[in-house]
Design a protein around this nucleic acid. Structure first.
Length: 468
RNA sequence: GCCCGCUUGGUGUAGAGGUUAUCAUGCAGGAUUGUCAUUCCUGCGACCCGAGUUCAAUUCUCGGAGUGGGCGCCA
């Protein structure tokens, strides 16, 4: 539980009024928030006030607060910000129906004064409390209002928790948090399109991945690092799971192979899921999301703490399974969405896909001579982590042998000269190392049941959206 | 980039070649209420843009713009 220190505008949060209500009864508090609704046109009025921590009813009586103040509140628009000072008291319990147990006591504030902070214009571009469906585009155009919806707010609070618990686990295993540059001179991996920019007089790009810099840190003896930061891809994709700017949760680890970092990844995800399942605030957020889903006739989301270790289905086995299920695929093909659906039939949650063909993996992925696939072509030490049909992570052991690295670059039609800043890091001793990159938005989709990755980003950047 | 769909009040929808254009939510006003998703009454508010077909287009055709879904690629 976090500890709230009073600020200039309020002595208590609305969450505290409810959670600490019994000890606050009869004491004076100052609270502030958005007015969800007001009821009552006579000599009394009820206000539903909401802040980021919860909701509380404010009760106004003309005798207590005066005619002018009462009239101000009664004529106030939804979502206006108001500040009240008043006395905490226990709410009168609702008229209990026969056989229904009395609910736990709730608390309200009987106002003695009110201060209008900012009046909301009407009508609202989208209803914060309305149960009518709102299109994603309308929501994103008015994201500040969308975020006031409790289930949306809950999703971003969960996002913070996912990152917190992920950091906790990595810190506990000896990793340190780092930052690599986002403005770079050359392509990281080749292949994907980059956003060009001008860096003073020099052409430059926004980085698509911290990959090469993470590896230089291994050569630098930092041993175990992680970075949670933006990655930019100029691909013109337009799907529920792609963004042009996303947050990549990356690690790199020395003296380790692919299996070692798969262990780190599954332990981290397990820790995140388990911690959330034991965190009351998180469970409340999930309950909030499920309450909303019920109004939309959607299935509730369920938090299933995954068992360790996660299943491992090698690329070769995956091809066999897909073929058995009637999928059209050959060894050496990428596993497309349709075939991933076939795999997901028996693997609905987290599972690893280790040992992809070398020809499908980037130049920095390590391979061991003699490890051949079923068609006698070279396997790699690269892996993916999927959740059902969706890819969440790509990783692997990295190629630390400089001669092999240079050959790999040439094989993939890349010029080692252009990667000199990177290749140089392998020239003076380097530990074997491995790592991965996890899409934060994608794992959040799995946690929150979001159908579109854009929902899990405050201000998503996609092909058609750069504002707000 | 390819394939398919959609565009009607602030929001989300129904609908038809000629309608007082549906419903929900909202907004405004009123009645009632220490309310508990309050309830009730009255009112307000919309057919994406352009061209064509037609006596008549918001409805049909074409084009544009916007948007949703699927795929490719990836995290």
């Amino acid at each position: 539980m976090s500890h709230y220190v009073p600020t200039a505008y309020r002595t208590h949060t609305l969450g505290e009024i409810q959670s600490k209500g019994s000890e606050l009864v009869d004491s004076e508090v100052t609270i502030a928030g958005f007015m969800e609704a007001n009821r009552g046109k006579g000599a009394i009025c009820f206000v539903d006030l909401r802040d980021g921590t919860g909701k509380t009813q404010v009760f106004l009586k003309q005798d207590n607060i005066g005619e002018e103040a009462l009239d101000l509140v009664q004529r106030m628009t939804r979502e206006s910000t108001l500040q009240f000072t008043g006395i905490v008291s226990e709410k009168r319990p609702p008229k209990a129906k026969e056989g229904v147990p009395t609910p736990p006591p709730a608390y309200e504030v009987v106002a003695t004064s009110v201060n209008l902070i900012a009046r909301a214009e009407a009508p609202l571009p989208l209803g914060v409390t309305d149960t009518v469906h709102v299109a994603l585009d309308t929501r994103l155009d008015n994201r500040f209002l969308d975020l006031r919806r409790t289930h949306v707010n809950a999703m971003f609070r969960l996002r913070g928790k996912v990152l917190q618990y992920g950091r906790d686990k990595l810190n506990s295993e000896g990793f340190i948090e780092t930052h690599t540059p986002k403005i770079v001179a050359t392509a990281t991996e080749g292949g994907t399109d980059l956003f060009p920019m001008t860096y003073f007089e020099t052409p430059a790009y926004l980085n698509q991945s911290p990959q090469l810099f993470k590896q230089l840190c291994m050569s630098g003896g930092l041993e175990r690092i992680y970075e949670i930061g933006p990655a930019f891809r100029a691909e013109k994709h337009d799907t529920y799971r792609h963004l042009n700017e996303f947050i990549s949760f990356d690690i790199e680890c020395s003296w380790a192979n692919d299996e070692d970092v798969m262990g780190i990844l599954e332990r981290m995800i397990h820790h995140i899921w388990k911690s959330i399942s034991e965190d009351e605030e998180c469970l409340a957020h999930i309950a909030t999301i499920n309450q909303f889903r019920a109004t939309q006739d959607e299935e509730p989301i369920e938090l299933i703490v995954p068992e360790l270790p996660f299943p491992r289905v090698s690329y070769c086995d995956a091809i066999k399974i897909i073929k058995e299920k009637g999928g059209k695929i050959e060894w050496g093909d990428d596993i497309d969405a349709e075939n991933s659906d076939l795999l997901a039939v028996d693997l609905p949650q987290f599972y690893f896909l280790p040992q992809w063909p070398m020809e499908l993996k980037p130049f920095y992925i390590h391979h061991i001579e003699g490890e051949m696939g079923s068609t006698d072509r070279q396997l790699s030490r690269g892996f993916d982590l999927n959740f059902g049909r969706d890819e969440l992570t790509s990783g692997g052991q990295r190629e630390h042998r400089i001669d092999v690295l240079i050959e790999n670059l040439k094989d993939m039609d890349l010029d080692p000269e252009e990667f000199e800043f990177y290749v140089a890091g392998f020239r003076h001793g380097v530990p074997p190392h491995a790592g991965w990159g996890l899409g934060v938005e994608r794992i959040l989709m799995k946690l929150t049941g979001a159908a579109n990755v854009r929902e899990t980003v405050l201000f998503p950047r996609d092909r058609k959206r750069i504002c707000p």
